[in-house]
Computed example of a mutant assay.
Amino acid sequence: MFSRLFNFFYAPLAALVFVAVVLPFCVIIIITPTLTLRRIIGRFCVRFCLLCIGVPMRVRGMENLPAGHCIAVANHASYMDGLILTAALPTRFTFVVQDGAASWPVVGPTLRRMGVTFVNRSNPREGALQTRALIRRVQDGDSLAIFAEGTFKEEPGLMAFKNGTFMIAVRAGVPVVPMAIRGSRRLWGSGNKLPRWSHIEVEASAAISPTGTDKAAETNLSNAVRAQVLAMCGEHDRLQSSSNDEDA
């Protein structure tokens, strides 16, 4: 009863505060001249927003990030995950996001100014060209942050990982850092139109390097990274659940 009453008042107030804080920061990011400074402002904005709505965030394992370029892969459970990972990761990471977000008012221009790379997963030919471009960027020294599930569902559980992320890692010869975001589904996921209070935890584990250059190496890397993310994220395996449902 107390929890429902608390969220009855908390949800609309937190949403109003969040929008009121984010919008001015979006404008500041859009007009800021350099990418590094824009990303620094973005990290501060997210942490400040979470502070304003009373959401604590704990970040662990950042020492596991390699000094050189790499790919960070995290689970995806809510609308907040990109923002949360922005606040957790160093500014050298470029986020890979579905291209639908590019057309959102205010948000789209802000993401572009933050250096986000948009990908089109609905067009195989365009997706292949974008993947090759990302391989070249990583080979040239960029680090990427990717939600390998591609999207999230209202129901909890880790979904299958898309292959593109691990093709990039294998072809570019860079390690992948498994990461977990916990608490974001409750904060603003599972179909919730308004936020609910939650604490947020972000954790990075030891990097996993490719063991070859062929398709088998991509599959092995994907399986190893997904297993580690699954072990850390606190949600069940949707692939295992689907398999059990089919067997039943």
Rank of each mutant, 00 (worst) to 15 (best):
S3E: 15
F6H: 08
A11Y: 15
P12N: 08
L13F: 14
A14M: 02
L16H: 03
L16S: 09
V17F: 05
V22G: 04
F25W: 04
I28W: 03
I29L: 12
I30M: 15
I30D: 14
L35K: 01
L35V: 07
T36P: 00
L37K: 03
L37H: 03
R43M: 04
C45D: 10
V46R: 00
R47L: 11
F48T: 14
F48I: 12
L50K: 04
C52Y: 04
I53K: 04
I53A: 05
I53V: 05
L65K: 09
I71Y: 01
I71P: 02
V73E: 07
A74R: 01
S78D: 00
S78L: 00
S78F: 00
D81M: 03
I84N: 01
T86A: 06
T86I: 14
A88P: 00
F93A: 05
F93S: 07
F95H: 05
V96Q: 08
V97M: 10
V97G: 04
Q98N: 05
D99W: 08
D99H: 10
V106W: 11
V107R: 06
G108V: 11
P109A: 03
T110N: 10
R112D: 15
R113H: 13
M114H: 09
G115A: 05
V116K: 09
F118Y: 09
F118L: 06
S122G: 12
S122K: 13
E126Y: 00
R132C: 00
L134M: 11
R137Q: 09
Q139R: 09
D142P: 02
S143M: 11
A145W: 10
A148P: 06
T151C: 03
E155V: 14
M159S: 12
G164P: 12
T165S: 06
M167H: 12
M167L: 14
A169Y: 05
A169K: 01
A172Q: 05
G173L: 00
G173D: 04
G173Y: 03
V177N: 01
A180H: 09
G183T: 02
S184Y: 02
R185V: 00
W188Y: 10
N192M: 11
P195S: 01
P195Y: 08
R196W: 09
H199P: 04
V202R: 10
S205N: 08
S209P: 00
G212V: 15
G212P: 14
K215Y: 15
N220S: 10
L221C: 02
A224T: 06
A227G: 14
Q228L: 08
L230V: 07
M232D: 07
S241F: 15
S241H: 15
S243W: 12
D245P: 12
A248Y: 13
